[in-house]
Amino acid sequence: MEHERYFIKQISVFSENRPGRLAAIAKAMEEDGINIFAFSIAEADGFGVVRALVNHPDKAYRKLTGLGFVVSFTDVIGVKMRDEPGGLYEVARILGEAGINIEYSYAYSGKEAAVLILRVDNIRSAIEKILAHGGSLMEAAAFR
């Protein structure tokens, strides 16, 4: 099976925790017409990592690196959830039963469905289990 079809490139940006850093990132995206679907900020002890799912990850990477940001790609998956009670439980149960650990996650509510973005410790196995249970995943092709 072609797992890579479902590997979504998340942009991870190292950022000091001081005013204006997120604004600087968001402004850079705006300048290049890049749409941010979802983002989250993980913070610890004076610095953090801004994680974002954007419509053009490579373009975003080039733009931010050019501005001096420290950027890297992280592979995540995007699970389409039913936007109703029980939607999250369904996904979490499948992974839990398969012994797959969720390192972090965030979500957004798109036009077609609610999307749960997951960083897991075993991405290939997560993809297989979700598909096997009839779940549906965002394809990487939607982000380029």
């Binding site: 991870s12 190292f14 610890a44 992280t74």
Partner: peptide, 18 residues
């Protein structure tokens, strides 16, 4: 200052470096 090329994107790796 961080070294650009050793940034993995993961917070826990930053902790490890620290």
């Amino acid at each position: 200052e961080m070294n650009r090329s050793t940034f993995s994107g993961e917070l826990r790796d930053l902790h490890r470096v620290q």
